[in-house]
């Protein structure tokens, strides 16, 4: 037992710490750009002209309809034949951005469509342009309604970041797999890895809860103290 504890502390200080940092790097690079993509795709779908709207729609259908792993393989193995060579890290981040962007866009689009049309009518009656009504009235309301869904998507991102391992980018799961292969203590190592993911997800949940509280307004379905 003593020996097991020493082993865990060893790998925690060594490969698992490196792996966790690598995972964090993946997540921190993908999450904001994923949200931004989601925002652009959803507004393009709702407000864009026929071409832009169709393009956004096609993007979402394509990404939602294919496994993320396939998307990563396409980016990593097929793009080089078109002259675009990406490192395992960049390929993973690009794949994660595209995936979380597609899913977030669905939450954001739903939120935009849920804003009552009389809110826009009132804005236009005050003399706001269509763009001003979107920026100052629709989006601030939509952001609050999209927050729970987008938070969920970011939490999924933490977990599917482990797929970067399939492109040989050594993040937490990969680091665990390598350590376990050396020591043959698969159960022990993967339990610890699982707990680290649980910790990261819990931290992210707390962060989003805090953001939700900051943005809370009576009349919107968010909790407020």
């Amino acid at each position: 037992m003593d020996e097991s504890v020493r082993y865990i502390l060893d790998i925690l200080r060594g490969p698992l710490l490196q792996g966790t940092l690598a995972s964090c790097k993946l997540i921190i690079c993908s999450a904001p750009l994923g949200l931004l993509t989601g925002f652009l795709v959803s507004t393009g779908w709702v407000y864009g002209n026929r071409a832009v709207s169709g393009l956004c729609r096609a993007y979402v259908i394509l990404i939602k309809g294919t496994p993320l792993l396939i998307l990563l393989f396409v980016i990593y193995f097929c793009l080089p034949s078109f002259g675009l060579m990406l490192s395992p890290f960049s390929a993973s981040v690009l794949g994660f951005i595209m995936c979380s962007g597609a899913y977030s866009s669905e939450y954001i689009r739903g939120a935009i469509l849920s804003v009552r049309s009389d809110q826009v009518t009132a804005a236009r009656a005050l003399g706001m342009s269509g763009m001003q009504a979107i920026v100052w009235v629709v989006l601030p309301q939509a952001a609050r309604r999209a927050l729970p869904g987008c938070s969920n998507e970011m939490i999924y991102l933490i977990k599917y970041s482990s797929l970067a391992y399939m492109l040989s980018f050594i993040e937490l799961t990969g680091a665990g797999k390598m350590a376990a292969s050396r020591s043959f203590r698969f159960t022990l190592v993967f339990s610890v890895v699982g707990l680290i993911y649980l910790g990261m997800v819990s931290l992210a949940s707390l962060l989003f809860l805090w953001i939700g509280k900051k943005l809370a307004i009576p009349g919107f379905e968010l909790k407020r103290d």
């Binding site: 009132a122 236009r124 009656a125 009349g219 919107f220």
Partner: peptide, 20 residues
């Protein structure tokens, strides 16, 4: 038209205040 609308105030049946 935006310039015209700012010269005419409008009050709606359902108030239509900005909820946020």
């Amino acid at each position: 038209i935006d310039g015209v609308r700012r010269r005419m105030g409008m009050v709606f049946q359902n108030f239509c205040l900005f909820d946020h």
